[in-house]
Design a protein around this nucleic acid. Structure first.
Lengths: 256, 256
DNA sequence: ACAAAATTGTTGATTTTTGTTGAATTTGGC
DNA sequence: GCCAAATTCAACAAAAATCAACAATTTTGT
């Protein structure tokens, strides 16, 4: 592992695509070195090589919301399938924002007569057009990176509903502190959904059990007895205390 | 895989259709290179090639809401392109629901720093995730066939905005009665948007100038002097009185 | 301090990509 | 159906990028 690895990844991910010669100039090494060092990164799938340049796999070029969709896509699709198994036709459900929730919303198009409340415009528009669904969009002012709302009216709408499930997600899971996210407003919405729901489903892919680059610091509501955790792999042993009494379901990630 | 691949996909998906020569200018390469690079993308099905231009496959296939709207798709795409010409970066705009407005929203992803208010969850989620946009979702309870809201809060949100343009549509145009739709709630929202806007853009494809199977009976607000009508063909002669003083723009429906 | 191992820069041959040219094809109008 | 304009295609030469090999340098282990 080379000392330039981090710098290469950083530059490529930041700019989406960087030519080999540009990188050579930035790191002040020869182009040949860039090629040599990036080769294992390409082979391990962290970067993509094209003639003349390196391209980020994180898809930095486009809308940041969709970019995150590509990260661990397979895991999220598997989780979404599992979530849909739990949710029967006619269920009422609150759904938060986040890429995992986005995939679940797509999968939920297979259900009918759902009552949905969400603060994500993407989730709302995905499920609203299914005939027979009743969808409420909570909030007015949409945040630009993911099209979700966190204003007062969002809370008003959520708080006057009573739903079967709250479908929440998290940016990281900590064995002591529980489910963490980055923004207080996300916690506030999650709490509102949590309170209005009989049961909570927390959906997190396996990568969330590992430390993250940007450490989130704010706690989602603690799961109650009988709440459900869906992931694509079994959580490591050290989370057993946290998940005591929780109904853990593992999605079998067989197909694409 | 070429280093231009991402940029081509990005531009084509954002704008729906881009001519080969335009792309060549944007990427600063020759037209021949665009053709060569896009060939594998076309073969793998990521893009569609027509004479002179590349067409995105996502527009028709992805949003299920518009997928159903195959009727006069080409006309609506052409109108959307024309509308985007009018609307500069940084404009504020109110957008109603409807398939034409949906296509315009897709095309508007090529703009930045828009301030948008809409009662359509599809329009909202499409434009909210563009970095720099400020999008407000008007309304809470979403109608199931198009994911649009018409409740009291929708009016509250629209009425407290003041925008440069209101972008409205209609189900039919009558030479005497003007622009007609089916539901009173649509008229109410249109009126609210009309009142909050300095200028109105009415977007209707040519089929709306002919009698419809289901005759709509409710009048949209009458256009003011200086308001704009966009269509894909020149309206028949009998509409000249109705359109007197209106700035009529015809989209050149060159490519499919 | 010494030698082995790993990393880096340089060189020249090889491969890939790109722009240009002119001929062939498609499109739209009459 | 024919013509003019626009677009596409094929081919070739120029430019750019890659690769392999070797020499110079730095790092590592003893």
């Amino acid at each position: 592992m080379s000392k330039y690895k981090d710098q290469i990844l950083y530059n490529v991910d930041m700019r989406g695509t960087v030519t080999v010669l540009e990188l050579a100039k930035i790191l002040d090494v020869s182009d040949q070195t860039i090629r040599r060092v990036s080769q294992p990164l390409v082979e391990s799938g962290e970067l993509t090589k094209v003639h003349g340049a390196l391209v980020s796999n994180r898809i930095a070029s486009d809308p940041p919301f969709l970019a995150r969709m590509k990260l661990n896509r397979a895991a999220k699709v598997a989780i979404a399938r599992k979530a849909v198994e739990l949710i029967e036709d006619g269920t009422s459900i609150a759904i938060d924002t986040g890429s995992t929730s986005g995939f679940i919303a797509l999968a939920l198009r297979a259900r009918e007569h759902l009552t949905v409340v969400t603060n994500s415009a993407f989730v709302a528009s995905t499920l609203a057009i299914i005939p027979g669904n009743k969808v409420s969009m909570a909030g007015t002012q949409l945040r630009d990176h993911d099209g979700a709302a966190f204003d007062r009216s969002a809370f008003d709408v959520i708080e006057r509903m009573q739903v079967d499930y709250a479908l929440l997600s998290a940016s990281m899971v900590d064995a002591d502190k529980g489910f963490l996210v980055h923004d207080q407003c996300e916690v506030d919405i999650a709490n509102a959904m949590f309170s209005s729901a009989s049961r909570t489903i927390m959906a997190v892919d396996h990568s969330k059990f590992e430390p993250q680059d940007r450490r989130p610091a704010l706690r989602q509501p603690a799961l109650r007895h009988n709440d459900i955790l869906i992931s694509d792999r079994n959580p490591p042993e050290r989370f057993s205390t946290l998940l005591d009494g929780i109904d853990v379901r593992i999605a079998d990630g067989d197909q694409s």
